Simulated scan of single mutants.
Amino acid sequence: MRLWSLHPGSLDRAGLVACWRESLLAQAVLTGATAGYRHHPQLERFRAEPDPVAAVGAYLTGLADEADRRGYRFDRTRVVSPAAPHPVIAVTDGQLAHEWAHLGRKLAARSPDDARRWAEAVPRPHPLFHVVAGPVASWERG
Score class of each variant (00 low, 15 high):
Arg2Cys: 05
Arg2Phe: 12
Leu3Tyr: 05
Trp4Gln: 12
Leu6Val: 11
His7Ala: 12
Pro8Val: 11
Pro8Gln: 10
Pro8Ser: 08
Gly9Val: 06
Ser10Tyr: 02
Asp12Val: 11
Arg13Gln: 13
Gly15Met: 13
Gly15Thr: 13
Ala18Asp: 13
Arg21Cys: 05
Arg21Gln: 14
Arg21His: 14
Glu22Phe: 12
Ser23Thr: 15
Ser23Gln: 08
Leu24Ile: 11
Leu25His: 10
Leu25Asp: 14
Leu25Ala: 14
Leu30Met: 05
Leu30Phe: 02
Gly32Ala: 07
Gly32Trp: 04
Thr34Lys: 03
Thr34Cys: 13
Ala35Lys: 11
Ala35Trp: 00
Ala35Gly: 15
Gly36Asn: 12
Gly36His: 10
Tyr37Cys: 12
Tyr37Lys: 08
Arg38Lys: 11
His39Tyr: 06
His40Arg: 11
Gln42Pro: 00
Gln42Trp: 01
Leu43Val: 09
Leu43Lys: 09
Leu43Ile: 09
Arg47Pro: 06
Arg47Cys: 06
Arg47Gln: 12
Ala48Glu: 10
Pro50Leu: 04
Pro52Asn: 10
Val53Glu: 09
Ala54Val: 11
Val56Trp: 02
Val56Pro: 04
Gly57Asn: 09
Ala58Phe: 08
Ala58Ile: 10
Ala58Thr: 12
Ala58Leu: 11
Tyr59Arg: 12
Ala64Tyr: 07
Asp65Pro: 04
Glu66Ala: 11
Glu66Lys: 10
Ala67Gly: 15
Ala67Ser: 12
Ala67Phe: 07
Ala67Trp: 07
Asp68Ile: 07
Asp68Gln: 15
Asp68Lys: 15
Arg69Met: 05
Arg69Ile: 06
Arg69Gly: 14
Arg69Ser: 14
Gly71Asn: 10
Gly71Gln: 13
Gly71Arg: 13
Tyr72Arg: 11
Arg73Ala: 13
Phe74Glu: 06
Phe74Gly: 05
Arg76Trp: 02
Arg76Phe: 03
Arg78His: 10
Arg78Ser: 10
Val79Gln: 04
Val80Asp: 02
Val80Pro: 01
Ser81Leu: 02
Ser81Trp: 00
Pro82Phe: 04
Pro82Tyr: 04
Ala84Lys: 14
Ala84Gln: 15
Pro85Val: 11
His86Thr: 15
Pro87Met: 04
Ile89Asp: 01
Ile89Cys: 06
Ile89Trp: 01
Ala90Met: 05
Thr92Gln: 05
Gly94Val: 04
His98Cys: 09
His98Ser: 08
Glu99Asp: 15
Trp100Tyr: 14
His102Asn: 04
Leu103Tyr: 08
Leu103Met: 11
Arg105Glu: 13
Leu107Tyr: 08
Leu107Trp: 07
Ala109Phe: 00
Ser111Trp: 08
Pro112Val: 07
Asp113Glu: 15
Asp114Glu: 15
Arg116Gly: 00
Arg116Phe: 00
Arg116Cys: 00
Arg117Ala: 13
Trp118Val: 05
Trp118Tyr: 08
Ala119Asp: 10
Glu120Ser: 12
Ala121Tyr: 00
Ala121Met: 09
Val122Phe: 01
Pro125Asn: 01
Pro127Ser: 02
Pro127Asn: 01
Phe129Thr: 01
Phe129Ser: 01
Phe129Asn: 02
His130Leu: 05
Val131Lys: 03
Val132Trp: 02
Val132Lys: 02
Ala133Pro: 03
Pro135Leu: 01
Ala137Met: 02
Ser138Gly: 13
Ser138Glu: 14
Ser138Ala: 15
